[in-house]
Design a protein around this nucleic acid. Sequence first.
RNA 1: GGCGGGUUGGCGGAGAGGUUACGCAGCGGAUUGCAAAUCCGUGUAGACCGGUUCGAUUCCGGUACCCGCCUCCA
Length: 470
Amino acid sequence: MTIIKLHNTKTRRKEVFTPLNPDNVRMYVCGPTVYDRAHLGNARPVVVFDMLYRLLRHVHGADHVTYVRNFTDVDDKINAKAAQTGRSIGDITAETIRWYLDDMGALGALEPDHMPRATAYIGAMIAMIEDLIAKGHAYAAGGHVLFAVDSYSRYGALSGRTVEDMIAGARVEVAPYKRNPMDFVLWKPSTDDLPGWDSPWGRGRPGWHIECSAMAQELLGASFDIHGGGIDLAFPHHENEIAQSCCAHPEGGFATVWMHNEMLLVEGKKMSKSLGNFFTVRDLLDQGIPGEVIRYVFLMTHYRKPMDWTADKAAQAQKTLENWRSVTRDLHPTPLSQFAPDPALVAALANDLNTHSALARVNELRTKPQKLLDNARFLGFLSDGYRQATSVQGIETTGNTAMPESSDMLSSLAQKLNDLRAVAMQSKDFADVDRLKAALLDAGIEVRMSKDGVELVPGPGFDPAKLEGL
RNA sequence: GGCGGGUUGGCGGAGAGGUUACGCAGCGGAUUGCAAAUCCGUGUAGACCGGUUCGAUUCCGGUACCCGCCUCCA
């Protein structure tokens, strides 16, 4: 069996991964707060943990992995959006979830086995909070329920800080009802215009962190294997999750391995609205950048390093993928039951998700197109959708430039070019040939002429309208 | 102030204490009516200063610079 090594934030070391139960490898990844389109940074953990999911399914069997990624559908940002637009919260969250799944699907990410919504687990959260109060780890005050960080000696262990250090930094919310300034909210009161649920502490809503603790407990149990997310979540979110879960369920260890992806930069700078370099996955897709190109750019960089999104990298990735597509154009994927991924590729992934090496390995397979195709698909590339969308047949399915006959048109144009060329070979007058070729190039078509004949391959900028009259 | 990460050739970006990374771009060649595509070949590294070592870009320490977190954030 493949030995998987993963970097564990908890120990700050790369460790051999040993599942608690090999028949059910369990992974929880923090999902989005659904108030708007996912921005590019939101997509990085999705792609990173999608690769881990694929690796785990390969090593342990697809039926022996459980992947949970939540939707945070109760949050003040959602409330603000509802107030601002006049739309209902349910409407906003339902639409945003749909967008999210569409956009992440475009990036080649498999859907997790469970995608729980926080609002479906309010009861479990309330029960957990009651339990924490009963065990002396939480207290009600000022209409809120707070977690008492002083009641958990290991608070701060994951992110390598102590309560004293953080108070010295003094960047904590001052609230008179807090026993310790670092105490964080488990439950807070809701006014009538805000979403709320009846609870022993009055009508209110959960704090941010408790949902992940409750849903992980419900779906994966008190101990599970991997918990993932962006590095910015390590503190406070994950630290607080650990405190809640380990205090409520001291019999369990919560997550064994903690994995965090580094942040995303855009052209060397942090993505922010004020810098004007803020954009969503959908923005890029709408610009005509295929989701697989975004996926490739993400996987070029190791997940524990900051990843810089640049137009240059996108162009490079696009070029590589077009090459892969071109080499494998006439091939059919091997049925999964008969496919085994390349050992060197699996070894790269098993080494703390060295996706860059895995991609390099696929590139080496260019001389074996069938292997290239199958292994690229194993990594989530060269999907049917991508191959179609970038082939003649697919042009018609993209909708905006419906040209059902473009395939026939191309083959007749290829024939015409071939005939002209045959004549020109005799006459040595290539003017007509060059004229037609130039027009085809202008329409975004790659012209391949060889001794065997002429091949026309539509490129990414293919514009069928320009073929009119040729 | 506290915690953490980074600095590799023109660009992106890995592994490994001593042997070619790889890709892109460049250059040379094959092929081509000219191209494209493809194939072959090829140059350029390891922020700085010390230490350990027979030998370090790779281990250890320091310096400089960059970045993230500590407040909602993937």
